[in-house]
Design a protein around this nucleic acid. Structure first.
Length: 635
RNA sequence: GCCCGCGUAGCUCAGUCGGUAGAGCACGGCACUCGUAAUGCCGGGGUCGGGGGUUCGAAUCCCCCUGCGGGCUCCA
């Protein structure tokens, strides 16, 4: 007999080997459970229990429940693909964040049109309600079976598994190497949809064969699936490439080259406002503004090591007076030159040099993506030169700035401390004190953080901040990296109070990342509706009839004098059309002007989403908007 | 870079089996002068991404190039 404890605190005895589902049958909602957790380990409902322990149900609405559904859906999809196509070799098919995929190797090309056929076959399989059955095989037998079936990828995976027996799951005529668990049977897959086909390298390595990947998603109910698909639609409507075009923010031109952004007046204004904000906040915190050249003799990148390590990502050299020059991929060497321009004493430190530095990187063409992944971009870069003792407080200062800026844009974030990776430069001792300094800074600021073990860069530890946008998506945010490598390479030192030379510590840090990516992300975060302080046009002045145009221009002038950005729509169009178009342009406020307003010298205020806000005098409206701008109230 | 797909008017897209192009919006003109999310009529606009090939004939079929999209690796 074995003793099983349940979440409600009760305990019962069962004969050894009882199925998990049966043991849990008396629990509430046991009917809906899709699997169980035994002492924290996921098991099938049909798994025999052989030891005493604590048992919990895994319900459909928890994350693990969803993963199990999707993983099972991936198996069903693989079975269906095996039915439709000849000679399919199966690679891997896991559940992922919002769904699942399966990688196949087959001669024939799977196209988007095939997705319908595959879905149909999946439905047929699901309708049969085949059970997912676990099969344990000794490794030798498993290898023999996979070899006979010509499943080379499974064979490769098997070769790396040490434990025995090996677990397989089968349904219908499909058998897959798999840890499980799975749903009891296919009929539990109520709602699914295949979304796309894509190429992917076996094990994500470009030296390996390109496989065909089919992406899909699955839910326990049609409603949830519909909700998810609607969310995808909404994300599409926020796509910064679409909004960038619609709102006249930026463009990319085939004639110029891929990944090179042209900022249009409205996008340019947004960027200018953010840069202005950025400069002000940096100056307040003791940073000094520098500018460094866009091209440089490649000698400098030999010293920095970039040429050695990042040559593939750098634009080819150009011959200048017989010397090879390169577009800069990083700002650090230039900043170090400024540091090195004279002998430095401990009294000069900390030295905080900041630059909105435009860099060029030859990113692989397939990775380019709107403003988010480009080849020419402006980093909000800064390098802090300091002593070892100053490191923690300098990092704390950066954390404060990062927090301030992220809040200004309405982002919440998560913080990670990335520690020494296996492949690294420098001594253990250096890693230890630099990591400790970061930790101390985080603790001093009372920042909640997680440790990303081994996630540091090869030359030093770092702090990564990931942003959570309004759609709940995670973005790369501010990063702070300690660097002991570049100071060594450039021999960046200072004279200490003791009269001796010491190696300077460099902190690389970025808050926004790159203007292109940050603003691309902001467009999606705000769905194109920028808060008043960033809106390129803050107010649209809308006269009702032509005879109100003069008054409209007078009001526009008044707004301009108050420092508010406005446009007047003087076309002979109906007011409803003007309102509609201003709303679609996502302009925060409208002033509607007709006979009543012209007579009384007032304006009728309308907000983009709140609608009619009634009549006011211009001064009151201006005061209201200026206060909103001052506080940088999110849209 | 690699795999798949796509590129038709400024934008979004239609274009059947190959017979030299069409809609809506936008743009220009005219009329209406209008009160909180689309007034009506008229008009201009395309060497169908570029090059080559097959064909009597190519937006349509084939090849190359280019750009874009979905992914893979990496990442500001």
């Amino acid at each position: 007999m074995i003793r099983i404890g349940f979440p409600d605190g009760t305990e019962r005895e069962f004969p050894e080997g009882i199925e998990a589902g049966q043991a849990a049958a008396t629990l509430q909602q046991a009917q809906e459970a899709v699997a169980v957790k035994m002492d924290g380990r996921l098991l099938d409902l049909s798994a025999p229990l052989t030891q005493s322990g604590k048992l919990e149900l895994v319900m459909p609405d928890c994350p693990e429940g969803l993963d199990i559904l999707r993983h099972s859906a991936a198996h069903i999809m693989a079975e269906a693909v095996g039915h439709i196509f000849e000679g399919v070799k199966f690679a891997i098919g896991p559940a992922i964040e919002d769904g699942f995929y399966y990688d196949f190797d087959l001669e024939e090309k799977i196209t988007e049109e095939d997705l319908g056929r595959i879905e149909k076959e999946m439905r047929r399989i699901i309708a049969k309600g085949e059970p997912f059955q676990r099969l344990s095989l000794p490794k030798a037998e498993a290898m023999r079976r996979m070899k006979d079936a010509g499943q080379v990828y499974k064979l490769e995976l098997l070769g790396e598994i040490d434990q025995e027996p090996i677990s397989f799951y089968g349904q219908g005529d499909f058998l897959d190497l798999c840890l499980g668990p799975h749903l009891p049977d296919a009929s539990r897959i109520k709602a699914f949809k295949l979304l796309s086909v894509a190429g992917s390298y076996w094990r994500g390595d470009s030296r390996n064969k390109m496989l065909q990947r089919v992406y899909g998603t699955a839910f326990y109910s049609e409603e949830e699936l519909k909700k998810h698909l609607k969310l995808l639609e909404q994300a599409k409507a926020r796509d910064h490439r679409r909004l960038g075009k619609e709102l006249g923010l930026f463009s990319v031109h085939e004639e110029v080259g891929p990944g090179l952004i042209h900022w249009h007046p409205k996008g340019g204004l947004i960027r200018h406002l953010i840069e202005k904000f950025w400069y002000e906040e940096h100056l307040k915190r003791g940073y000094q503004i520098v500018y460094t050249p866009h091209i440089a003799n490649e000698r400098i990148f030999e010293i920095s090591g970039h040429l050695d390590k990042y040559a593939d990502l750098m634009y080819s050299p150009m011959d200048i007076d017989g010397q090879p020059y390169r577009l800069k991929p990083m700002n650090c060497p230039g900043h170090i030159m400024i540091y090195q321009s004279r002998k430095r004493s401990y009294r000069d430190l900390p030295l905080r040099l900041c630059e909105l530095g435009t860099v060029y990187r030859y990113e692989p063409s397939g990775t380019l993506h709107g403003m988010l992944r480009v080849r020419g971009f402006t980093q909000d870069d800064a390098h802090i030169f300091c002593t070892q003792e100053q490191l923690a407080s300098e990092v704390a200062g950066v954390l404060e700035l990062a927090d301030f800026m992220m809040k200004a844009f309405g982002y919440t974030y998560r913080t990670y401390l990335a520690t020494m990776p296996e492949d690294h430069l420098g001594t253990e001792e250096e890693w230890q004190w630099s990591t400790e300094a970061l930790r101390k800074a985080l603790e001093e600021r009372r920042t909640q953080y997680e440790v990303d073990e081994g996630g540091g860069v090869f030359y030093a530890p770092k702090i990564d901040i990931k942003l959570l946008d309004s759609m709940g998506r995670l973005w790369q945010g501010p990063t702070i990296q300690v660097d002991l490598n570049l100071p060594t390479r450039f021999n960046a030192t200072y004279v200490g109070a003791d009269g001796a030379e010491h190696l300077t510590v460099i902190v690389h840090r970025t808050v926004l990342g790159a203007m292109e990516r940050f603003i691309g992300g902001l467009i999606e975060h705000y769905a194109g509706a920028f808060p008043l302080w960033l809106a390129p046009v803050q107010v649209k002045v809308l006269p009702i009839a032509d005879r109100h145009n003069d008054y409209a221009l007078e009001i526009k002038k008044g707004l301009q004098e108050k420092g508010l950005r406005s446009e007047a729509d003087l076309r002979s169009e109906r007011i409803s059309l003007k309102i509609r178009e201003a709303t679609l342009e996502k302009i925060p406020y409208m002033l509607i002007l007709g006979d009543k307003e012209a007579e009384k010298g007032t304006v009728a205020l309308r907000h983009r989403t709140e609608g009619d806000l009634g009549q006011h005098c211009l001064d009151d409206v201006a005061a209201r908007l200026l206060a909103e701008i001052e506080e940088r109230i999110p849209a």
